[in-house]
Each structure stands twice: as structure tokens, then as C-alpha cells.
Computed example of a mutant assay.
Amino acid sequence: MQGGKTMSQRDFLEYHKSIAAELKATKDRVQYLIGSNHWLTVGEHKEAVLRKVLRGHIAETYHIGTGFVCGPDTTSHQIDILISSRDKPILFEDGELRIVTPDMAIGIVEVKTRMPMSRDLEEVLQKIADDVEMIRTNGNQQCLAGLFIYEPYNTIGGPERILGIVQKVTNGEESRAINWIAAGPDIFIRYWCKGEDAQSIQGPVWHSYCLSGLAHAYFSSNVVWDICPHSELNMQYAWFPIEGGKERYRQWYIGLNDLQPRRFSLVKEAAASRS
């Protein structure tokens, strides 16, 4: 025992740090070799890196690739990371590429190199919300959605800017809610369908967390944990190794129908005033 941590806790934490380091190192290698003249190839490689990491952890009952979801009236955009069931018929498959019906889609993830400017970020999140809404209303209400950004967040506004935009594109509809966002290696955002699950406000809410160097690993862990619903709660220590839990690192929140984000310190002050 040292510094209040056992050896196993310390090892799990370092393990998840190594996942984040692996993501960064692997995605950089192709760019080092071919430079910035082939951004399409680099972008596709970064998607493949995250698919490989998720594939190494998610249950074998799911397929991780890329592809499209065909609804009765429309087809999704091309999905960078499409997590689909292995136990239902497939419309089309060629290597990693799959075209499936909405009931097959378990999760969708968009991958970006860096944080887009506000207007572009809204377009990205709008696209994800449109796709997951189509899936949820045509076959799988439990489909999950996320946005994964590699480079550190360095634009004006902080995580509250992202929260404001993700709430806006949802239009107050739970069917459009985006579940996870990794905004670089430090900022993680998670949607809670019931705020009281994480001791914040009542009802659906997004929380932002400052997880220095661990946002990418926590994104992966949340995808795996949420996709695999039979995980035992007492096994969380292996997937979420921050001592005391990530809730200690909450910064901002916004409810599904809020007008603007608020700091968590205000939640604590309000609770203290009521006690």
C-alpha cells in the first residue's frame, strides 16, 4: 500500500494510461511517414486505430467496423465506427464495411483529428444526432452514439461550449442524445439519461469532466461498458480506475432542456442552501 492506493489500483490506472498513449502513438506513425499531404489516408487510419482498440475490449458478440445503416426512408451518413450485432442478418459486408438495418446498430462513433470550430462542430454533432435518431426510431432504441477527437482541446469556450452545442442539436429529444464525447485527451463528456444516477440534477443531463490524459481511455471504457449491458457493477474498478471515481472531476453540466451550461459548484451550493 502506498499513497492510499493498492498495487492493483495503481496497475489498472497505468494500464488505462497506456491505452491513451497507444492511441496517440499509433495514430501519429502514419502521419510521420506521409506528412500532411494525404489527410484522407491519415483520417482513415485514425478511425482504424480506434476501431482496433475497441475491438480488443468489446465482447465478441459485436462487430466493429465502418458502414451505413439503412432505414425504411433514409440511409445514414457513412459511420466511422459502426458497432453492430453478430446474431442478425447483414445486408452487405466486405471486410470492415457493413451495411445493416437499424435493429443491427448497437453504437455509432464519429472520429475527428481536432476540435472543429463552432459552426463545423454543430454540423458534426447534428449529423451524429440525425443518424442515431433514425436508428433509435426505426429499430433499436438502445443504440448509443459518440464523438472522439484526438487532438487537445485548444479553442475558445471550454467544455461548456461543447455542452451548449450538443444540447442544441438534440432539440430536447432524448432520441437525439449523444452519449459520449472525448474532446482531446483531457475532456470527457457523458450523457446520463437520469441525472440522479450521478447525483446531479433530475432528468437527462450531460456532464463534462477534466480527466488529465485519460479522456480517450475513459471514452473507450464507457463505450465497452455501456455496449455490454451484462457487466457486473462490482467490476467497474477494472474499467474506471480513477481513485474515488471520475465524478470528483466534474466541471460543467447541462440538462436536456436547459438554455445554458452551469458549473457543478452551483449544484453543491444549491444543495447546501436547502439542507
Rank of each mutant, 00 (worst) to 15 (best):
E151V: 02
Y150F: 11
A129R: 11
M134V: 04
I187E: 01
L50G: 02
L144F: 07
D120N: 11
L125S: 01
V53N: 06
D103W: 08
E122C: 13
F68C: 06
S85K: 08
E174L: 10
N171T: 14
M104S: 15
V111I: 05
Y191C: 06
E174T: 11
S118F: 09
V169Q: 07
I79W: 02
Q78A: 08
A59L: 08
V53R: 12
H77F: 05
I79P: 05
I81L: 10
Y62V: 09
V132K: 10
G107C: 14
N140A: 05
G184V: 05
T101V: 11
G139H: 06
W180C: 00
G67P: 07
I162Y: 07
Q142F: 14
S175V: 11
E133N: 13
Y191Q: 03
C143Y: 11
M117H: 10
I135L: 02
I189D: 00
I58M: 09
G67E: 04
Q142C: 08
P152D: 10
Q126F: 13
M104L: 12
A182V: 01
F68S: 02
I108H: 01
G95D: 09
P89W: 02
Q142I: 03
R136N: 07
I187S: 02
R51S: 10
L82A: 04
P72V: 03
